[in-house]
């Protein structure tokens, strides 16, 4: 199978910077997210991640989230991505998630804590920055 092409998006006013490098197992979403249509923005990302995990595009993967603000539809999309990551970890893949947030940002800290509850197999880390 040919290597999956990475997905790269520059940040826009309403959508985050995205890098999904499937072959390298490096994933990053950073910035603000309140897209007009969350399903059409996150749908291809969810699908790509699912395919990469099923095809074992990398032996292990690292997924970093560095959000400043996201709306409720984005929260739902993140949850979908995280469910795929936890399933991959449960199936034996090395999965590390970095939830990065500014140390003063209680909202992002709370979200990070809440998402962490769904991970039993993946290595989920809270990464406060100053």
């Amino acid at each position: 199978m040919a290597a999956m092409e990475p997905i790269r998006h520059e940040a826009t006013d309403r959508t985050p910077e995205v890098l999904f490098d499937f072959a390298a197992g490096q994933y990053r979403i950073a910035g603000e997210s309140y897209p007009e249509d969350a399903a059409s923005f996150y749908g291809p990302l969810t699908q790509g991640l699912r395919q990469a995990v099923e095809a074992r595009a990398s032996d292990s993967l690292e997924f970093s989230v560095e959000m400043i603000y996201f709306n409720s539809s984005t929260a739902k999309a993140l949850m979908n991505l995280f469910q795929i990551l936890e399933e991959a970890a449960e199936a034996g893949m090395g999965v590390r998630i970095n939830w990065c947030y500014h140390e003063d940002d209680e909202t992002m800290e709370e979200f990070g804590e809440d998402f962490s509850e769904d991970f039993a197999h993946a290595d989920y880390r809270m990464c406060p920055t100053s």
């Binding site: 969350a38 709306n71 409720s72 539809s73 929260a75 739902k76 949850m79 809440d114 509850e117 769904d118």
Partner: peptide, 26 residues
């Protein structure tokens, strides 16, 4: 509210809701 939000995130969206119930909790 924090618990309820999380619970709703795990569920498939309500019929015809387009995810709006989570928006109200937010």
């Amino acid at each position: 509210l924090r618990r309820f939000y999380k619970e709703k995130l795990r569920e498939p969206p309500d019929e015809g809701s387009k995810g709006g119930s989570i928006g109200l909790i937010e």
